[in-house]
Design a binder for these strands. Sequence first.
DNA 1: CGTGCGGTTGATGTAAATCAACCCATGTGG
DNA 2: CCACATGGGTTGATTTACATCAACCGCACG
Lengths: 262, 262
Amino acid sequence: MNRSKGPWGLPNAAAQAAMKDGGELDILIRRLACHSPLSSDDRRVLRSLSHSIRRLEQNDYILREGDRAEICPILLSGFAYRHKLAADGGRQIVAIKIAGEPLDLQSLHLRVADHNLQALTAVTLALVPLVELESVIALNPAIGRALTIDILIEASIGREWLLNIGRRNALARLAHLLCELVHRLRLTGEPSLDDIDMPLTQEQLADLLGLTAVHINRTLKTLEDAGGVRRSGRRLMIGDVETLCRIASYSDIYLHRDNATA
Amino acid sequence: MNRSKGPWGLPNAAAQAAMKDGGELDILIRRLACHSPLSSDDRRVLRSLSHSIRRLEQNDYILREGDRAEICPILLSGFAYRHKLAADGGRQIVAIKIAGEPLDLQSLHLRVADHNLQALTAVTLALVPLVELESVIALNPAIGRALTIDILIEASIGREWLLNIGRRNALARLAHLLCELVHRLRLTGEPSLDDIDMPLTQEQLADLLGLTAVHINRTLKTLEDAGGVRRSGRRLMIGDVETLCRIASYSDIYLHRDNATA
DNA sequence: CGTGCGGTTGATGTAAATCAACCCATGTGG
DNA sequence: CCACATGGGTTGATTTACATCAACCGCACG
């Protein structure tokens, strides 16, 4: 486990001034636009949010439980995850974040983090000072609204995960998670899981689904036999999405996909 | 199961105009003040939010998955809960709401509900039209902020529940839930669970904790032997909170209790 | 005065955990 | 370039926590 502390000095004024708009934040805009209407003004403001870019390695911590953040990291590429630890050392992954998603809107309003935030793969982050974000929100209500909706949808996903862990068996649980990732990735038309392979190890899948790595292994095998996934060596890839959806009885309403088209 | 549909015609203008400020919303203010600073202006605005009062029976639905709401119910007394259904009929309770909490801020921003909202006990609701809430928020940023914080804390509780269901055994799970309810109820100094008794049936506890009613029954017995709870007939009451906290390794940071005192 | 819901109890079944090897790919340092 | 360490994955044997099934109880209530 990587024990490096929060890996940034705050981007200083000079560094920020030097920042060019390279369109890095486009992915954020595309992600927000999946659920919120954004005017071209809003988009322009978002695109020119002052920020610095940071690369982190796999497993680097982005934020720790108890920390007080002063920047909001936005995930430009790669995957990240939130997790909490039980007293007995057990670990529960409580969210997976994908490219384009803001990672810590919570710190705009809450003093201390209640969970850990870690890089699942190597990641690129845009670091936006919270004060900057605050003033942008104050001046652009639609942007504040879009960010609130982002929070609400993450909460909705959390509720679906509760249902998943509390009431479905291992096979359906696993299939459901894969369906969700496929659907979320497809929303922006980024390279989807049909192209790339699953960024989670079996142990991480276990920590996410409330199971053990051994049981994940056996369940993956049944999923493979059913055609839901393909595997070669350590690589895990999506097989037939239809099959996965059927096994999980998947419905994506909880993602609020078409919320923007009210 | 109660199949009555959403039980209100919208409060009409006349009915609203007739509404007096009887201080019914004080409980909301006290609840919000637990996590957000509110000026006396903010409090006055909140207190005079136009609303109508509605009583519902135990098990009445407040909102159904797929519904589009136009009012925000605020829970003035009693308990309510959110739940979702799995394809096989399994049910998962994903949130418990207590007096003072707004029940559907989500509909301010999302078109359709992704879960059901039901009265756990007989309840009193204040029904605030969403349009009214919107304009109040627009004019009083601190109120909007308080409501956002309410959303964030519910999400934090959801993450803790994921940890609870995913990684703790039945005994710790049950104890953890009871600890949480005790702590949340104590925040406003309302009659707490030391006084009143547990509003949940064993079946509801099961649906909440991802277990079965039978197993809840046996687990309650062990909890009683340990001193954590007392029971007489169907009534379930908190025994020794210390004991419960020890069994659950309980820590309440996730409730963000002292967020207001930044 | 039945009727039904919530609770209780025992016997039995099973999904998933646990324990314990072992494999293989990758990377690292001598 | 080999020696070895390491982290993920795989597999089988065994255990266990919880589910399931099936009674039965007793209060509340219509």
